[in-house]
Write a protein that binds this DNA or RNA. Structure first.
Lengths: 185, 185
DNA sequence: AACTTGATACCGAACGTTCGGTACACAGTT
DNA sequence: AACTGTGTACCGAACGTTCGGTATCAAGTT
């Protein structure tokens, strides 16, 4: 695991956008150079481990973002429905209301899968667990709650893909709007 | 649209496997050469349009497969639940019980999106419409049925991704098992 | 029967370009 | 001086694609 620096972190938004849209194999160093405004040498200066180093930096940032989302959203005040609605709103923002794909799905494809599967799996699993925890605290059985967490992830990932393929972000928005009640049923 | 030939069609299974797993950008001509046993020059002999020609051949085959699935499964005998269960079984087979990704999602990523979006969109839309038609014939309102068709696609795509990321195909299987009743509710 | 022609399928070599990556030099800041 | 950051030039490998060629087969002609 490469060392994280403030400079690296400052490139996360740009890198995230590239990897989520083009996937690992579709993002070349030239594309990154263009998007960040840095030459290749500078990119290697900041990310000595190259492309993999960049993806890891993005994943570390995502882990932090997820933690923050859990603390401020899911683990905050209110009943389950309120909390899940707060999460739903954050998700809408994070995916630009259905217009941006999920990097976790993108990294499950191609050569990225072999390299990053453990981290991606851990992130997604963590997200599911957090949703399940909210439902458990509201009185739901653990088994059922875990299933619901998975359902939530299926809805999120599935609606992002369908919205993207059909070029219709309202599908994602509609799905997110219904998700909280569905999980609490 | 390049001309389709029997030779081209004979390579569809191999090409489908490569593109669904590695995506468009992750599949090189070398990889295809290796998987098909043909040299690169031979690949160009059969697919003069190159990689794009190969993807199009796969998409044409998928369209035919979808038509067949609709005729034999969704448009066949029985009530809506029976028909949707038949479709669900075919889907399970087509995705090797959750172990293989969907090429439509893979082609929605990277440089493939720009080239193949119209065809991919048409395929997915056609699938949704076929599901909605079954529900409409069983008495459901058109609006609701169309929504249900989308929900089905969200469940399929989402559960494939979640199963893949979590390395747990049972998630897909479970989702497919419940899908017919869910759509008919 | 032998030869010619056309069609089909395949190949190795080569092409121009892009890939990820490295070495070195220089400039700015502390 | 040390550190941080950048640019230029270059590398070998791989990319997608094309070229010129060989092998085989079937059909037609002599």
């Amino acid at each position: 695991m490469a060392k994280q620096t403030p400079a690296k972190q400052s490139y996360v938004p740009t890198l995230l956008d590239l990897f989520r849209q083009y996937g690992y194999d579709g993002v070349s160093l030239s594309k990154i150079s263009e998007a960040t405004g840095l030459g290749k040498a500078s990119l290697y200066h900041h990310f000595p481990g190259g492309k993999d180093d960049m993806v890891e930096t993005v994943l570390v940032a995502l882990e932090q973002f997820l933690e923050k989302t859990i603390q401020e959203g899911l683990a905050g005040e209110g009943d389950a429905l309120t909390r899940l609605t707060r999460m739903s709103d954050r998700i809408r923002d994070g995916y630009d209301h259905g217009k941006k794909p999920c990097i976790l799905a993108a990294l499950a494809l191609g050569s990225a899968k072999e390299t990053f599967q453990p981290q991606v799996k851990q992130l997604l699993g963590h997200w599911i667990d957090a949703i399940a925890t909210v439902l458990i605290e509201s009185g739901m059985e653990q088994d059922v709650a875990q299933r619901r967490g998975e359902e939530a992830m299926i809805a999120i990932q599935g609606s992002l893909i369908v919205s993207r393929v059909l070029d219709d972000p309202s599908i994602f928005e509609r799905t997110m709007a219904h998700l909280p009640e569905q999980l609490c049923r």
